[in-house]
């Protein structure tokens, strides 16, 4: 290209006399497969990848906020591994820090209701409550998504109403009912309540998901001779797996974290669920921070790890559940 006249059009007159200049065009073979910067040393690349000032500032602000946001949990964790005297002196003082698992040990064997037993109880209640809700939920959601039947709108409205209701509203009726059935203060009673309570949102959530599955798939299966049950088992269930995982993660977190239902329906200390035990650990004179912290860490570890591993399903489910 001529430096003194960069605007001179090229190629335009090439056909009318002068041939085009081959040097003007690069052959595709000259184009490198990877960007030349990739061959630079790591040092240069790191320096170059440091973003411009404004963007850098944005990163600094974002990271600072995110870290500040979890400081309370860091404090909780620090308290769980330090003796009470050091916690009262301030967990943020790091000099002379003693790491101890005494708090965990004491929480695990806590006299009123050992955390070990409480965590086991929580699993015993949570796992069936999640699995049954998933199965019954997807079964009930299927007709809502595909069939017309009487009372459909009424049922739909009832589900919405229950979703808006506070858990306290169903406590009185269920309290009397469970005592009537002899299920009060039993695993089964609490599991049934969680199933009944969770079904509302699960049916609604899965119905919305099933509406998005093309009906042609089912029609094709019907032409192939599949019955309604076969279609459900072989087409609907496999296709709704992602939504079912979301349901599982969110329902698990909800049941595991629930405090009010166990508080009302579990009265024997040996049946206490983990969240129920934590407020009892406060002690009378001096709050037993170490004990509470260790118990809290053990209780929250399960849903938090579940979230971290299945983050995508959790977030997607959360968004879909409320946005639909």
């Amino acid at each position: 290209m001529a430096e003194d006249d960069p605007l001179e059009p090229t190629g335009i007159d090439a056909g009318s006399g002068r041939a085009t200049d081959h040097d003007q065009y690069l052959s595709v073979d000259d184009v490198p497969d990877i960007a030349p910067t990739a061959e630079l040393s790591w040092r240069t690349r790191i320096i170059e990848s440091i973003p411009a000032k404004r963007r850098a500032l944005k990163y600094v602000v974002a990271i600072t906020i995110a870290v500040l946001w979890i400081v309370p949990f860091i404090g909780l964790f620090m308290a769980s591994i330090r003796p009470l005297s050091e916690i009262i002196g301030g967990w943020w003082h790091l000099e002379g820090m003693t790491v101890t698992f005494e708090n965990y040990y004491r929480a695990w064997n806590y006299s009123t209701a050992p955390m070990g037993q409480a965590l086991l109880n929580t699993f015993i209640v949570t796992i069936p409550a999640v699995l049954v809700v998933m199965l019954l939920g997807v079964m009930a959601a299927y007709p809502f998504a595909r069939f017309e039947f009487p009372l459909k709108t009424t049922l739909f409205f009832l589900i919405l109403l229950v979703m808006a209701a506070p858990p306290e509203l169903i406590a009185m009726g269920n309290f009397n009912a469970l005592r009537e059935f002899g299920l009060f203060d039993t695993y089964m009673g609490l599991i049934l309540i969680h199933i009944g309570w969770g079904l509302g949102w699960v049916v609604l959530f899965l119905r919305n998901y099933l509406l998005g599955i093309p009906e042609e798939l089912e029609e094709a299966a019907r032409i192939d001779g599949a019955s309604r049950y076969q279609i459900f088992r072989t087409i609907i269930l496999p296709l709704s797996t992602p939504a079912l995982v979301s349901v599982a993660v969110i329902q698990f977190t909800w049941v595991w974290n629930a405090f009010f239902f166990p508080l009302v329906f579990m009265r024997s200390p040996e049946l206490y669920l983990a969240p129920q035990v934590l407020p009892l650990m406060r002690g009378r004179v001096q709050v037993e921070w170490g004990l509470i912290a260790a118990g809290s860490i053990m209780t929250m570890a399960v849903p938090v790890l579940l979230f971290l591993f299945l983050e995508r399903y959790y977030k997607r489910g959360m968004v879909a559940a409320v946005a639909d």
Binding site: T10, G11, A14, G15, T20, Y25, L26, V28, D30, V31
Partner: peptide, 19 residues
């Protein structure tokens, strides 16, 4: 093609004399 210019020309020339 592949990130680089192969030819710049008026349409007829492009057709008559592909580089």
């Amino acid at each position: 093609n592949q990130g680089t210019v192969q030819q710049v020309a008026p349409p007829q020339e492009l057709y008559d004399r592909p580089r």
